[in-house]
Design a protein around this nucleic acid. Structure first.
Length: 1018
RNA sequence: GGGCCCGUGGCUCAGCCUGGUUAGAGCGCGCGCCUGAUAAGCGCGAGGUCCGGGGUUCGAACCCCCGCGGGCCCA
């Protein structure tokens, strides 16, 4: 016997042990087959997996297992993204560090060691979590971004970029984190709402008294670096005469914005005295508002320029600081402005900032506002809530700073990248054609340098004497012994001799971590250090990641790959969604709505977890719901029960699956057809990576068709004689269904399918060591009989309708009825009912089934009181009289001068011949004859009796085959003629009407007291 | 301001690409039923302006356009 209840825990621990003890994973891998290059997007080694990463790996594992069963040997090297700021920040926190100086004095070597150990420990912890989900990857041999052979892949790429003229060192405004003291890529900036100062500042126009250009800013700290004002050439500007406390001043700003701006200040009156287009203002000079505080500003001329990016917002005049803004910088470059940046790495003003030197920019805001106020250059001061960028790891607000950085000129590669996007199969299609293309076409040059420690060192050496650059493209050009010794500070000690006789030193920067993972498609197979695999496999056949990777890994890989090979590194990309909580919110610690994968697995098992996450469309966000997760578990329980049913009887009969079909009955042919239809659906869906369709089809087939319908139909057949051809057919059919279905669903639910393979499938036929050494079933199309499938649908509908009619007639199913009539004008329906008449008769518990095109019933038209009541009030009664004379529904009703919609006001009922009840179904109507005669009642009583004896047998915990003696205290006439039936159904050797003996219970059958006694015979 | 996605009973979601009976499922709710797969299971019922508005079409949840609401990303 199989365990009565499905216990995921027991199933999983047994299978884990089985796989481990027998080294199954290795055997499956060694089976060999066609190549399939899968690249794992490396999760960052945070130490814990969350629902999203768990979902991600489950999708991957399902695809890999499917591919293996399809005869491929997919690469299944898991990856780990191990460098970067997040780990540095963690280690810094652990050590209580606040700045880079703390790290330097602690020792970079020791710091790096800490980071490495931290990353490695996290990797190990996460590996265990992934294993728990049943993910079969080569955990012993992962690829890691910290390995020399991997770092080599990044060096190779940067060298290629350099050779192609795509690597550039330039001063640019970058996102800067002053806590981490490093540049950040756009992808590393996270936006959320924050409150900042919002100030309107008056810039004095040169040579004119009391005349000002008005600008607006949320970053007062950038004003010391102001170099210009930008306006839009075709926007209308105005000079406003404004009066405050009797004093007059003139303000220049966009005309349409004047009232709203002036209204904020404390002016008494104002009026437009002059208007001009932006272009008339070009070249207008002004004095820097903080020229006294920042003396160096007196060196430069300040004037007004055009810029297209100016919009009619705020004042229409934009403060330009080329050292602190991307657009500012670009405008500055165009107009030849100085890139003035008086802020250092830590966000502290340098000496150049004059009076503000030594202050932190965020602290200087207030002082600058005060100074402006004191000088009467502050029109108004307020606060504003707006979206502002933050360092995505340490959450510090970023600032913009012009610094020297290393860039990849993505802008020159865009066309090629976009062309390559079209060569890739995207699932869903819009992930590539819309979302990713949009991102790439807006991409800017990629800043790849970081002023940090824990990362792949930039392999760029510069001569201190002549400035010559050497980009190293292979680790073989530098001394290295072990896997892990290419990090800082060791690599910093490598010095080359320059042709000029000078010394070449390495640029101290490390790579942006996105560059690390960007080279995964060859780094993971150690190219170019080793070449064979690359030549055989590249590019990847398939990758899958969440939609956040549009700007992440999909992008970084495409960029590096186009640089190195002019080609996309992947052929197919499945983009999946995000996991959210039930309300659709992000899961976060602060909201307290985080659900841990272990928690889910603990409740419903790994198979349950997997099927739950694979149940909905992968590209949609997944709102996690415990309710739904448990529901999947319930369905698995039905699967368990269905298999257990089959097993129980096949086992009892020592069944052997040898291809002998016996005599297949129509329901057998039906479920075998459905099996192949399901199999076809699964195969088709998997080819298009429509994973959820397989899971849905599986439950539909196995729970709905096999368990709820087929097994109900064949229950009597498993009690037939051992060599009965009909029973053999049932066994053959059930076995085939289970065998094939388990193999189809194995990639999705590996534990339960392996368990059934070991305990059920191999019990009745020879097999392989593991289900994963079997091949994935391909549909046998010739067994599909769509007409029969259609017909069975009709039969099911009829049975449902009959059940409905019984409900109305208050006739429970145990009570047999004389007749069931199906009324339909549809030829297909009639044929189906005739074909499956026996099934309908048995399922509906009726003696006779009849099909007619038209049943003798009378149409009765009644008023719909719900509608006409409120409408006609006291006239409703009169209306009812009027309606009672109608023979058919008229199009329109004119009643007492009112026009009434007949569809709303009338309801149709049918008057049936005496004794019938009806219900409708999609093909027509079903009628049952509900009257009982003595013969039916005797049968009904017999069944009532049987049912109770069965329950008593169970209460005594009797074996199914055990014989009993039964004594019943009731009028024997009630079941006359059914004695043998009762005896055989209940395995009673004797049935005596007399004093109840043995295990005795008193029952109430339809109001009659009946005492039943049973006892064991042996 | 831009791009993408989403909006279907109280809840979670299929269906939409490829238009075609009366729009489905599960959960929840109400009423029943069944029972040697059984601390399960099954049926029936109530509950839907398929976000709104226009268009294309003989026909739109589905295709197109314009809105509204939500999410993500970008500015």
């Amino acid at each position: 016997m199989l365990p009565a209840k499905y216990s995921p825990k027991n199933v999983e621990s047994e299978i884990f042990r089985f796989w481990k003890d027998n080294d199954v994973y290795r055997k499956v891998k060694e089976k060999g087959g066609r190549k399939f290059y899968f690249v794992d997007g490396p999760p960052y080694t945070t130490g814990r997996i969350h629902l999203g990463t768990a979902w991600n790996k489950v999708i991957k594992d399902t695809i890999l297992r499917y591919k293996r069963m399809m005869g491929y040997t997919p690469t299944d090297t898991p990856g780990w993204d191990m460098h970067g700021l997040p780990i540095e920040v963690k280690v810094e926190q652990e050590l209580g560090f606040r700045t880079k100086r703390d790290i330097e004095s602690f020792g970079i070597d020791k710091f790096i060691e800490k980071c490495m150990n931290y990353a490695l420990a996290n990797k190990d912890a996460m590996t265990e979590q992934f294993k728990m989900l049943g993910v079969w990857m080569d955990w012993e041999r992962p690829y890691m971004t910290i390995k020399a052979e991997y770092m080599n892949a990044a060096w190779f790429a940067i060298k290629r970029a350099y050779e192609r003229g795509l690597l550039e060192r330039k001063k640019r405004v970058v996102n800067w984190c002053y806590r981490c003291e490093t540049a950040l890529a756009d992808a590393e900036v996270e936006y959320w709402d924050e409150e900042d100062p919002s100030i309107y500042v008056k810039f004095p126009v040169k040579g004119e008294n009391n005349t000002y250009i008005v600008i607006w800013t949320t970053t007062p700290w950038t004003l010391p670096a102001n170099m210009a004002v930008a306006i839009h050439p075709s926007l209308e500007y105005a000079k406003i005469r404004a009066v405050k406390n009797g004093e007059v001043e003139y303000l220049i700003l966009a005309k349409e914005l004047a009232d709203s701006v002036l209204g904020k200040g404390d002016y008494d009156t104002w009026e437009v005295v002059e208007t001009y287009l932006g272009e008339d203002l070009e070249g207008l000079e002004y004095e820097h508002p903080l020229a006294d505080e920042v003396p160096i500003q007196k060196k430069w001329r300040h004037q007004v320029f055009f810029a297209d990016f100016v919009t009619a917002e705020n004042t229409g005049c934009v403060h330009i600081a080329p050292g602190h803004g991307v657009e500012d910088y670009e405008l500055g470059a165009e107009k030849g402005l100085e890139v003035f940046n008086p802020v250092d790495d830590r966000g502290i003003y340098t000496e150049e900032a004059g009076k503000y030197a030594g202050k932190h920019v965020k602290e200087a805001n207030d002082e600058i506002i005060d100074d402006l106020y004191r000088k009467d250059l502050l029109l108004v001061e307020g606060r504003v809530v707006h979206r502002y960028g933050h360092c995505w790891r340490c959450k510090t607000p970023i600032i913009y700073r012009a610094t020297e950085q290393w860039f990849i000129k993505i802008t020159e590669l865009k066309d090629e990248m976009i062309r390559e996007i079209d060569m890739v199969q995207w699932i869903p299609e819009w992930a590539g054609s819309a979302r990713f293309k949009e991102w790439v076409s807006n991409a800017k040059d990629w800043c790849i340098s970081r002023q940090r420690y824990w990362g792949i060192p930039l392999p760029i050496w510069i001569c201190e004497e002549c400035g010559k650059i050497r980009v190293v493209g292979s680790i073989e050009e530098v001394p290295w012994e072990s896997d892990l010794d290419l990090h800082r500070p060791k690599i910093d000690a490598v010095i080359f001799d320059c042709e000029c006789g000078g010394k070449m030193k390495r640029v101290p920067d490390v790579f942006d971590v996105w560059f690390d993972s960007g080279v995964a498609s060859w780094g993971s197979i150690a190219y170019p250090l080793r070449k064979e695999k690359f030549e055989e496999l590249w590019p990847a056949d398939f990758i899958t990641e969440g939609h956040d990777q549009t700007r992440g890994w999909f992008y970084s890989q495409l960029g590096t790959s186009v640089i190195c090979f002019d080609k996309a590194p992947y052929k197919a990309v499945l983009m999946h969604g995000f996991t959210l909580d039930e309300q659709g919110r992000k899961m976060s610690k602060s909201l307290g709505n985080v659900v841990e994968p272990e928690e889910v697995v603990g409740q419903i098992g790994a198979d349950g977890f997997r099927l739950y996450v694979l149940y909905s469309a992968p590209w949609e966000d997944l709102r996690f719901s415990w309710e739904e997760a448990r529901n999947v578990n319930r369905m698995l329980n039905i699967v368990w029960n269905a298999v257990r049913f089959a097993y129980t009887y096949m086992n009892l009969d020592n069944y052997r699956f040898d291809g002998e079909m016996g005599e297949l009955k129509i329901e057998d042919r039906w479920i075998l057809s459905r099996l192949e239809s399901f199999c076809k659906e699964a195969n088709d869906a998997m080819e298009g990576y429509q994973i959820h369709r397989v899971v849905r089809a599986f439950f539909e087939f196995f729970v709905e068709d096999f368990s709820r319908w087929y097994i109900q139909l064949i229950r009597p057949r498993v009690w037939e004689e051992r060599d009965s051809p009909s029973k053999i057919a049932a066994y053959y059919t059930m076995f085939r269904v289970i065998d094939r279905t388990m193999r189809i669903i194995a990639p999705f639910a590996p534990f339960i399918s392996e368990w059934f393979y070991q305990h059920v499938i191999k019990r009745f036929r020879d097999g392989k060591e593991s289900i994963f050494l079997e091949s994935y079933p391909e549909p046998e199309i010739e067994l599909i009989n769509s007409e029969l499938e259609e017909a069975m649908k009709v039969a099911k509908d009829v049975v449902e309708a009959a059940s409905n009619a019984r409900n109305k007639a208050k006739r429970k199913l145990r009570w047999p009825l004389r007749e069931l009539v199906v009324e339909s004008e549809n030829e297909k329906v009639r044929k189906a009912v005739e074909l499956l008449e026996e099934i309908i008769r048995y399922q509906c518990n009726v003696k006779n089934v009849r099909v007619v095109t038209s049943f003798e019933k009378e149409v009765v038209i009644k008023p719909n009181y719900k509608v006409i009541g409120p409408l006609l009030k006291d006239k409703a009664g009169k209306f009812a009289d009027y309606v009672s004379n109608l023979k058919e529904i008229p199009e329109k009703i004119e009643f007492e001068g009112e026009e009434i919609d007949s569809r709303e006001a009338l309801v149709v009922d049918y008057k049936l011949p005496e004794g019938y009840e009806y219900a409708d179904f999609p093909g027509g109507f079903v009628y049952i004859y509900k009257e009982l005669d003595d013969e039916l009642i005797r049968e009904a009583y017999a069944r009532e009796l049987i049912r109770r004896i069965q329950e008593m047998r169970k209460e005594l915990d009797l074996d199914v085959e055990e014989f009993i003696g039964t004594t019943v205290e009731m009028d024997p006439e009630l079941v006359e003629g059914w004695e043998d039936y009762i005896k055989s159904e209940t395995r009673s050797e004797k049935l005596i009407f007399g004093k109840a003996e043995g295990y005795v219970k008193v029952w109430d059958i339809e109001g009659k007291k009946v005492k039943i006694g049973i006892k064991r015979m042996s």
